[in-house]
Amino acid sequence: MMKIRKVLAAAALIAGGLLTAQMATAGDKIRIATEGAYAPFNMVDSSGELIGFDVEIAKALCAQMQADCEIVAQDWDGIIPGLRARKYDAIVASMSITEERMRVVDFSEKYYSNVLAFVTPEGSDIVVTKEGLKGKTVGAQRATIAGQYLEDNLGDVVNVKLYDTQDNAYLDLATGRLDALLSDKFPAYDWLRSDDGKGFAFNGEDIDINDEIGIAVRKGDSLKNKFSAAIKAIVADGTYAKINEKYFPFSIY
């Protein structure tokens, strides 16, 4: 009997300790998750530090809200469940605001807008219109907005090839298997600037597909409005533009 009581007491102590520790962190800190695998928005540098546009925006927002923030890395697949399980309080990871996700989380106002763009070899004579692309082979990543756009709008005239990863699509563009690639513009911009993207360029106008990127928080959390207000504030005071400039020579808001 004594033994059981001792164990129970110890368990209660430990549980109590954990609880207070948990409450302490929950009280002072906003914990923010990002993925760390979507350059140039969120990635890990050689010292293991999270960097990128999302990370800098998150830090600027915290400074604006005068909150103490901790940024953690979380795999994409577990990122929404982790939020709901209170592992962290917000997701700043280039997440598109979609109806499906709105069912399980709340989103702040957008902090940037995603557009699509075609990439072709430099000096290619392809005109990226329905007419110009007739009979060409155009690639995109499967299960992305770019892939869907390609199928829905050009599926009847071009030969659509869908890849499991964006990198595989880049490989085929480089070997000439693809005449053109349709992709989210900003990651592609980053690729074009790197060594790998030498010899390729954007072709034609951006395609606006009304894809807004927001910050996800738990349903009903008051953080939603705080983040929205902070986004407005950093856009207004020029902090946003400064961060934007470091990554892209054009506004992505």
Binding site: D167, N168, L171, A174, D196
Partner: peptide, 11 residues
């Protein structure tokens, strides 16, 4: 391997 290939271009 695919991650390595995406930066080395040596599939």
């Amino acid at each position: 391997s695919q991650v390595a290939i995406s930066s080395t271009k040596e599939p």
